[in-house]
């Protein structure tokens, strides 16, 4: 499939991505920064990466483009942050996960399944009168799916915070030698492995 850039409309948020040491208080420290520097945050997502003890932080924001640049600079002030980048205007893949519990008895189930097919969503749980639909996609796709599921009756639902990666040609890296903390953690890991 051709790589389609995802242009940013005015309603779409700014997207900032960072790598950070995965210390126990990375989340509260990040929240405290976003708060005290008055950013209009839509979402924050933090999770591990393939590098031990290094986490990926994704923030989406409202505001003019300079807010994204400002956040990149401000993130540099957080002790744990290793590098940060503004992905707002670069070709990227952005995804969100949704779990939607929909009213559907045996008679209605095929119709829900049909909707799922169109949206490349899956039914992952079936009960007597409800099903749980799992979908991933960009925020617009999830919005679209919800619009068509709503008439069936949404009992409850959850959406994760969106995450994003730049498409090929651009990736976040950091050049520094590992911090003393990181070295210490890696040493402890290898001791435990033995």
């Amino acid at each position: 499939m051709p790589e389609i850039p995802e242009p940013r409309s005015t309603s779409q948020p700014l997207v900032i991505s960072a790598l950070a040491e995965d210390r126990p208080d990375l989340l509260p420290q990040t929240v405290a920064l976003l708060r005290r520097r008055s950013f209009q945050v839509r979402s924050l997502s933090i999770g591990p990466t393939d590098t031990p003890h290094v986490a990926r932080v994704t923030v989406t924001l409202d505001g003019p483009q300079r807010e994204a640049k400002r956040l990149v600079r401000e993130l540099g002030r957080l002790l744990y942050v290793l590098s940060a980048d503004d992905l707002s205007d670069v070709p990227r893949v952005g995804r969100q996960l949704a779990l939607v519990k929909v009213t559907a008895d045996a008679a209605m189930r095929p119709q829900v399944a049909q909707v799922c097919e169109v949206f490349r969503a899956r039914i992952v749980d079936v009960a007597a009168d409800t099903v749980i639909v799992e979908a991933t996609g960009n925020v617009d796709k999830i919005d679209g799916l919800l619009a068509v599921l709503r008439p069936f009756g949404i009992v409850e639902m959850v959406r994760s915070e969106p995450v994003a990666l730049a498409r090929s040609g651009r990736h976040l890296a950091y050049s520094s030698p590992p911090s003393t903390w990181l070295e210490d953690r890696l040493r402890t890991d290898s001791k435990q492995a033995h």
């Binding site: 002790l79 942050v81 590098s83 050049s175 520094s176 590992p178 911090s179 003393t180």
Partner: peptide, 12 residues
């Protein structure tokens, strides 16, 4: 104690 001066995270 770390036996070298502590290195902080982040790029120099």
């Amino acid at each position: 104690w770390p036996d070298t001066p502590v290195r902080l995270p982040g790029s120099p």
